[in-house]
């Protein structure tokens, strides 16, 4: 099950986690990604999460709902989520089908996402630790 090229990579960058989705995930892979990411947020004491979907040329309703759920769970575990790299076609298709990202912040690309997190994530004693 876990053989073959990685479908998702999760990297740590300072207080943030950067999760890149490399290819379209099916529902069970999406769930595994969610569990894995939420677990890592706690383990690595992250304050922000960037989910990069630039490689996806399609995002179905389950996928976008899971992303929303991840953002909500991450918030409960103390990290702010920003979704980056939504392609133009994907963006419009998502809106058409009425499946936006809800209250989750979105940014153009990874760089923008990092800038956003730097701006909004409060730097408390926890980040300095």
């Amino acid at each position: 099950m876990n053989t073959g090229p990685a479908l998702v990579s999760v990297l740590r960058q300072g207080p943030y986690l950067i999760a890149s989705i490399h290819t379209a995930l099916d529902d069970s892979e999406m769930i595994r990604f969610q569990e894995d990411l939420i677990e890592q947020i706690g383990r690595r004491r992250s304050r922000g999460v960037i989910i990069d979907v630039a490689a996806l040329d399609v995002l179905d309703s389950f996928g976008s709902r899971t992303l929303r759920n991840i953002a909500e769970m991450a918030r409960l575990r103390g990290a702010l989520t920003v979704i980056v790299g939504i392609q133009p076609d994907v963006a419009f298709a998502m809106v058409r089908l009425g499946m936006g990202t809800g209250s989750v912040h979105t940014a153009l690309d990874l760089e923008e996402g990092l800038t956003y997190l730097d701006r909004v994530v409060p730097s408390g004693p926890r980040t300095r630790a």
């Binding site: 979704i83 980056v84 939504i86 963006a91 998502m94 936006g100 990202t101 979105t106 153009l108």
Partner: peptide
């Protein structure tokens, strides 16, 4: 309106 939403998804 959808276009505005889609632009927001792209961070603009």
């Amino acid at each position: 309106v959808q276009t505005v939403d889609a632009s927001r998804l792209m961070g603009a």
